[in-house]
Amino acid sequence: MPKKGNRKRLKFKAGDVCSESVTVADYANADPAVVKSGRVKKAVANAVEKEVKLLCGLEASHGAVKEVLSSAENARVDALHSSDDQEPEEDAVHGSKVPHKKKNKRRKESSEGSDGSAYPVDIWYVISSYIRPEDVCTFALICRDAWTVTCTAAFWTRLYRRHYRIDVHLPFHLQPDFEKMRCLRARVIRSLFHLYEPFDLRVSEIPALPESTPTTLLNSKCLLFWVRKVPGTRPEALWEFNFKLLKQQWRSKNGCTKTLHLPRQYEEVHTNPDSDCYMLQVTTLNFIFTPVVMGMTLTLFTINVSADMHHHRVRLLFQDSPLHRGKKKVDQGGLQVLLDPVQSVKVMNWWHPQYPFSLYT
């Protein structure tokens, strides 16, 4: 039986309980100082049991009502008790002692079962037939099975066929050749920037580099460097200085985070030698001698106005080691490349239509 003080503070008598006097507030807004465990008091349980029997004609029955009250109370205890509290408590209806550890385990099992439903991979495979190219990343982040579908060669093959148009001129290396699985994903993405209008417009809307700060190229390693004469220009030919830069990835101090590994049978599909690469293309009005900077790291990149006020001046500084985070930019040492006067500057990702492709991709 509950203590007299508790019964007085709840303003409740076991004999005057009816269906109208028992409200949700008696349970939801119960005083935590009085009902520390959050359990239904035995007097309340007995009164409710008696009232239910009178309403339902179950005066002679005892099992059904007790079963309902017991299940309701167990659900309430599971919702209110902490997983760290493992003290046994007296059950309000049965009078038995049930440790919290078992109830927390039951609550954990029920919560795991209510996380969601797992659908077969075939369903995600069918849904992927209606995914737009710009939504592939969002689709892959839904679940592991959706990501697995985006790893398959069939997914990228169907994406290419859905947007292929015979009236669009494609470079030879982007023509439909699905027998070659190597670099299939990279070739399909490059093709979409020719075939898919939203991607084509995205390339045309890229702002000119002199209007933005080229900080994305800092700490990039120069893989290739070459100079060529622009064909079809005037006698004072234009010259293109091309720097193929690899953006170096930094690891956190806590180590690498857990990543998903590609299925072994689709590693060829996702192979891309130009991944994380940029092409810096600087066009000058005349030939300028520059030192060899292959293998060095770009630590400084500035674009200023040329002395004639009609062109730009590009300054590149390459050093042997990358610039670590938090350190100030060093403007001394290394090899400096000064290009002036400059007509245009372009930075192209590996998927850009003007990016110099490799025969191996």
Rank of each mutant, 00 (worst) to 15 (best):
M1W: 05
K4W: 14
N6E: 12
R9C: 07
L10D: 04
C18N: 14
N46G: 02
N46L: 02
A47V: 02
E51F: 02
L54G: 04
E59M: 01
A60H: 05
A64P: 08
V65W: 08
E67L: 09
A72L: 07
N74W: 14
R76T: 11
H81A: 15
S96P: 04
S96G: 03
K97C: 13
K101V: 08
R106V: 12
S110I: 15
G113C: 06
S117P: 01
I123S: 01
Y125S: 15
V126A: 09
C137F: 09
A140K: 01
I142Y: 01
R144N: 14
W147E: 09
T152W: 01
A153L: 00
F155T: 03
L159K: 04
R162T: 06
H163N: 11
V168L: 06
L170N: 01
H173W: 10
P176A: 03
K180N: 11
K180G: 06
R182D: 13
R185A: 09
R185G: 00
R187V: 03
L195W: 02
Y196Q: 00
F199W: 05
L201F: 07
V203D: 00
S204M: 10
P214S: 06
L217G: 10
K221I: 08
K221W: 07
K229P: 03
R234E: 13
W239Q: 09
N242I: 10
F243Q: 05
K247N: 14
R251D: 10
N254C: 05
L262G: 11
L262A: 13
Y266I: 06
Y266K: 00
E267N: 09
E268Q: 15
E268P: 01
S275E: 10
S275F: 11
C277F: 03
N286H: 15
L298V: 11
T299P: 02
I303A: 02
V305T: 13
P322L: 04
P322A: 04
R325K: 07
Q332E: 12
K346R: 14
V347E: 11
V347P: 04
H352E: 07
